[in-house]
C-alpha cells in the first residue's frame, strides 16, 4: 500500500472513530459508574489492527483521544482517562491478534480489549484519586465491558468482512 493511500485511509478511520465517540456521548447510559460506556470507537481500533497493525492502531487511537477531548471539552483528566484505557486495550488486542488470529475471533479479541480498556481507566482513576476504593467499580466495569465488547466485536467482524470484499485495504 502506498504511503499516500495509507494516510488517506487512516485519516478516514480517525474521523470515523471521532464521530463514533461523539455520537456515543449523546447516548445516555443508565449505569452511573465512571467508565461504563458503549466503546463504539473500539470498532475502528479493531479494524485498524486487522488491516494495518499495532503502530497504526496506536496512532489512530491517540489522535482520536486528543481530538475527542478537545471537541468534547473534557480537559486533561478525561483525556488521560480515555487514553490510558485506549492504550491498554490496543496493546492487548494487537497482542492477541498477532498471537493467534486462528485461535481468537474478532469477538473474543474485542471482549478482551473492552475489559482491558476498563481496567486501564480504573488504574488511572485510582492513581489520580489516590484511592484504591475505586476498585469497587471493577465488577460492574468488567460485566459492562464484557457485554459491550461482545456487541462491538460482532459489529467489527461484519465491518471487517465487508471491507475485505471491497479490496480497498
Amino acid at each position: 500500500m502506498s504511503g499516500v493511500k495509507k494516510i488517506v485511509l487512516l485519516g478516514l478511520l480517525i474521523s470515523q472513530a471521532l464521530v463514533l465517540s461523539i455520537i456515543e456521548s449523546w447516548i445516555p447510559i443508565p449505569m452511573p459508574v465512571p467508565g461504563v460506556k458503549l466503546g463504539l470507537a473500539n470498532i475502528i481500533t479493531v479494524t485498524v489492527i486487522v488491516f494495518f497493525g499495532f503502530r497504526e492502531a496506536l496512532t489512530v487511537m491517540t489522535i482520536k483521544c486528543v481530538l475527542s477531548s478537545i471537541f468534547g471539552g473534557g480537559g486533561w483528566m478525561l483525556f488521560l482517562f480515555s487514553f490510558s484505557g485506549g492504550l491498554l486495550s490496543t496493546v492487548v488486542m494487537s497482542g492477541l491478534y498477532k498471537a493467534g488470529r486462528d485461535k481468537f475471533s474478532i469477538i473474543g479479541i474485542s471482549i478482551a480489549g473492552a475489559i482491558s480498556h476498563n481496567i486501564g481507566q480504573l488504574l488511572v482513576a485510582a492513581f489520580f484519586m489516590q484511592d484504591l476504593a475505586v476498585a469497587f467499580f471493577l465488577p460492574l466495569l468488567l460485566v459492562s465491558g464484557c457485554i459491550m465488547g461482545f456487541f462491538v466485536g460482532v459489529i467489527s467482524s461484519f465491518l471487517i468482512n465487508a471491507l475485505k470484499n471491497t479490496k480497498l485495504y
Binding site: F104, S105, A135
Partner: peptide, 29 residues
C-alpha cells in the same frame, strides 16, 4: 464466528468477574 481461543478469554473474564464480585462484597461487609 467464534473460535476455540475465545473460550479461554471468556473463562478468564468469568473468573475475573467472580473474584472481583466476591472481593468487593467481602470488603464492603
Amino acid at each position: 464466528m467464534l473460535k476455540k481461543g475465545d473460550l479461554f478469554i471468556v473463562l478468564i473474564v468469568i473468573i475475573m468477574i467472580a473474584v472481583s464480585f466476591v472481593g468487593v462484597s467481602i470488603f464492603r461487609g
